[in-house]
Design a protein around this nucleic acid. Sequence first.
DNA 1: CATATTTAAGAGTATTTAATCTTAATTAGA
DNA 2: TCTAATTAAGATTAAATACTCTTAAATATG
Lengths: 145, 145
Amino acid sequence: MKALSQVGKYGLRALLYLVAYPPENQYLSIRQISDDLGLSFHFVTKIFRELTEKGILLSYRGPSGGIALAKPAEEIMLIDVIKVLEGEDFFDKCLLGLPHCGSAKPCPVHEFWKEVKSQLQENFSNTSLALLGEKIRTQEVRLDE
Amino acid sequence: MKALSQVGKYGLRALLYLVAYPPENQYLSIRQISDDLGLSFHFVTKIFRELTEKGILLSYRGPSGGIALAKPAEEIMLIDVIKVLEGEDFFDKCLLGLPHCGSAKPCPVHEFWKEVKSQLQENFSNTSLALLGEKIRTQEVRLDE
DNA sequence: CATATTTAAGAGTATTTAATCTTAATTAGA
DNA sequence: TCTAATTAAGATTAAATACTCTTAAATATG
Ligand code: SF4
Ligand code: SF4
């Protein structure tokens, strides 16, 4: 089961790095993130540009430039990030992908797919980046290896 | 959230058609299924070949040939079909896709991803094709439109 | 045996996704 | 003002996925 695209995976990992290890100065360079996580610098740059456009990150060019959160990590929910990285319709995707479907005209697997999907959506909506960053800092969880 | 590939979606729909509307004679032709569901005949043929190789379908060439279930629909679970169509590792896929990970060295979203995944896996394991076929026949659910 | 029907096999094409590369723009600091 | 550091933008390439097409093999029936 493939839940996130490469854009989603890399983007989320890179973003969580920033949240977990915020820099002393205002901006953290993309190079440091991509090097530390072993991701392609250019690919991460492209992904971050999207997050910047959509108001989740701020960016600054030039020496000692980089990226930073546009809002406090407490106010950014996982679902906001996912919707930028995977598209607004992320939670509309279906198992059989029939046209015109939904609860009124369900397909054979609608019943439990609906449950699975809403459970995931709820978790994404209730999880802030701040919470995940804290888990990473306390080494309860990890971002690489 | 993209759960199934096109192979998985088309394959499952076509297979459920056979289960729900089994032919009087021994075999049902792929042409009838693909035409009825509006799917590519060649694509469905390719998918069915795989299901035949893996022992879920029987096939027979020549006039009045076609495909048939290799076992009673009661004995084929959704998860068996999914594992053929999407690969044995379908339920090993991850949100962040870190190497060497699992419950011992979890990533930040492991906790709820694990839950979501096992809920889906359980549903797939407990659902037989016979059950879904019956739902379709009684028009509780549908395969097209 | 000849023909029509049907699946098998695999080559070929198109589209989407993933990743890389090049150049431009911005900015700090010597 | 010059240089180095950094993101922005977009062109390009690579790989995976999704089909499509052609030919072969099997088989029923007249
Ligand atoms: S009926 Fe439900 S599960 Fe099935 S394709 Fe539609 S929305 Fe998805
Ligand atoms: S830690 Fe869990 S959710 Fe995260 S990538 Fe590994 S198996 Fe997937």
